[in-house]
Nucleic acid binder design. Structure first.
Lengths: 212, 212
DNA sequence: GTCTATATGCTGATAGAC
DNA sequence: GTCTATCAGCATATAGAC
């Protein structure tokens, strides 16, 4: 029942994910892909007859499915969503910084770049994001939010996360990810009818650190 | 004192901005640049001896300076920031949709793509974003926020805006931009000590529209 | 399924006439 | 400052031996 540890096809997918999250789709060449996967070019076209686009699409789907699992993984430890959300953003910030500011989300990186120039890939990215929204909404509902509030929150959270990734990576500062996490916690508060007194996240807690 | 309506150099900058906001940096070729600017290739290297990178850098600086001016332009009409912020996001959504889902921010598009592969351009993008933060913070201070709160808000707002651009453009739906705007309004509330009662933006107002 | 050799076109960039 | 001709190299993709 145990398969090979890593098939050639899987290595292509991993290589594509890693290269695309750093450079995007256009800048990632087939040659780089084969070098990173340790396989010759003919092998790529054997497993993915439609070439680079097909590898990218498959990599987006695979890594997208993995990514959404992080949501419960990071947030389950916290009883209160107002704590869980900033904690998830902080975890993303830590991972990004630890990776030397490269580990952005491959889906976000590619989606921003190809939405108007690679229709097939844009559709795949849209599918992945839609599935994130559905699964994430279901998770928030399980945590007690109404479907409408859950969906609203999740969409705003994904938006803030992807944008904060861009800012944090470009500025090489964790501040945007932290600020985005606090903003989303406030949104949860406002929609669940809780006031802002008391547990208000401290603004400016880490905004003193300048980038340049 | 009146200069030419449009110098060759300016046409290169405009072409670079428009092409990069749609396709990103890597996918934009020098040939496309010259075709869009209506000038031969030698002309590009006359004005920008360092080539494609230099055009892109100059285009990011120029368009970045224009972009931040939209902040007061869109928000001045509203007395209350809690109304001004969602209105600004709604305006961005309308522009994006009207352009056939292409008109994303060129700085965000490029920054996401090159942060780990084009060090020189990443630095330029970081400069532009830093200047946005400084100018935007100053604007919010003028509107009555404390410097710390203003800065926190602006960083979160930029993050949410860039990320919501990506989601909206990919999904071809204005929902993410609207949801992000509401989240930021909630953040303003929470930081200025106002509760969430009464003026809470209605969650789910437009989240019913599905993309696929 | 793996791998090499190769085809065709486009890439960013340069030289130099005008 | 404008424009053409051209370079060397890399792009994606294919054919076909093993």
């Amino acid at each position: 029942m145990a398969e090979n540890v890593s098939t050639t096809r899987d290595r292509f997918l991993t290589a594509a994910t890693e290269l695309m999250r750093r450079q995007g789709y256009a800048a990632t060449s087939v040659k780089q892909l084969t070098a990173a996967a340790g396989a010759p070019i003919g092998s790529l076209y054997h497993h993915f007859p439609e070439g680079k686009q097909q590898v990218a699409a498959a990599a987006l789907r695979t890594s997208g499915a993995v990514y959404i699992q992080l949501l419960p993984l990071l947030m389950d430890p916290y009883d209160d969503l107002r704590e869980a959300i900033p904690a998830a953003f902080a975890a993303a910030a830590e991972d990004l910084e630890r990776s030397g500011w490269m580990n952005m989300c491959p889906v976000g990186t590619v989606a921003g770049e190809i939405a108007d120039s690679e229709p097939a890939l844009r559709e795949v990215a849209a599918e992945v994001i839609t599935s994130w929204i559905d699964q994430g909404t279901a998770y928030f509902v399980r945590r007690g939010l109404s479907p409408e509030v859950a969906r609203e929150l999740l969409i705003a959270m994904l938006s803030a996360l992807e944008g904060a990734f861009i800012l944090s990576r470009t500025l090489r500062s964790a501040t945007p990810l932290h600020a985005a996490g606090r903003a989303l916690a406030a949104h949860v508060d406002s929609m669940t009818g809780r006031g802002s007194a008391g547990k208000t996240p401290e603004p400016g807690a880490d905004v003193g650190e300048r980038t340049r």
